[in-house]
Simulated scan of single mutants.
Amino acid sequence: MNYTLHQLHIFVKISQTQSITRAAQELHLTQPAISIQLKNFQDQFDIPLTEVISRRLYLTDFGWEIAQVAKMIINEAQALNHKTLAYKGLLYGKLKISVVSTGKYVMPYFLSGFMAQHEGIELIMDVTNRQKVVDNLTSNEVDFSLVSILPHQFNLNYLELMPNKLYLVGNERNKTGQKTNDPGLLKKLPLIYRESGSGTRSMMEKFIADNQLVVQKRLELTSNEAVKQAVMAGLGYSIMPLIGLKNELLNNDLTIIPLTGLPLKTPWMLIWHKEKQLSPIAQAYLTYIQENKSTIIQQHFAWYNRF
Rank of each mutant, 00 (worst) to 15 (best):
K104I: 11
K274A: 03
Q277N: 03
Y304P: 00
I66G: 04
N252I: 03
G120S: 15
Q299I: 09
L254T: 13
K96W: 01
G89H: 00
Y304W: 02
D253T: 03
N155P: 04
S148D: 07
F11G: 08
G63I: 07
N157F: 00
A302K: 11
E76V: 02
M162T: 08
V142Y: 02
L90E: 09
Y167M: 05
Y105Q: 14
L168F: 09
S139E: 10
F45Y: 09
T255E: 05
Q216I: 13
I53M: 09
T266I: 05
T4N: 09
N164H: 09
F307D: 11
Q298A: 15
D46A: 12
P190E: 15
I10P: 01
D126F: 03
R173W: 12
R55A: 15
L186R: 09
Y3H: 08
K179E: 13
A209T: 08
H118A: 10
I296F: 10
D61I: 05
G199H: 00
R194N: 10
V215P: 05
L219Q: 06
W64S: 14
N181L: 13
V100E: 07
P267S: 12
A226R: 12
R22I: 11
K293D: 06
I281S: 03
L186H: 11
I281D: 02
F45D: 08
R218F: 02
K83F: 08
R22G: 01
T128N: 08
M1C: 10
P32Y: 03
E195L: 06
Q290D: 04
T260R: 15
T260W: 13
I34N: 09
I34W: 08
R22D: 10
F11A: 12
A77L: 08
Q290A: 07
M107W: 01
M203L: 12
F41V: 12
T180D: 09
Y158G: 02
V100L: 03
N247T: 12
A209M: 04
N157I: 01
M72T: 14
P258W: 10
I149G: 04
K228I: 03
K96V: 08
L95H: 06
T295G: 07
T255C: 03
L137N: 11
T60R: 15
P108E: 00
I149F: 01
Q37T: 04
T295Y: 05
T287S: 07
L8H: 05
L168C: 14
Q277I: 02
L250Y: 14
N129D: 14
Q78G: 01
K94T: 13
L249I: 10
Y109F: 01
S98D: 10
T138G: 06
I20H: 10
N40A: 14
W268A: 02
F307P: 12
A67N: 04
A24Y: 13
K88V: 04
L49G: 00
G261N: 14
S145W: 00
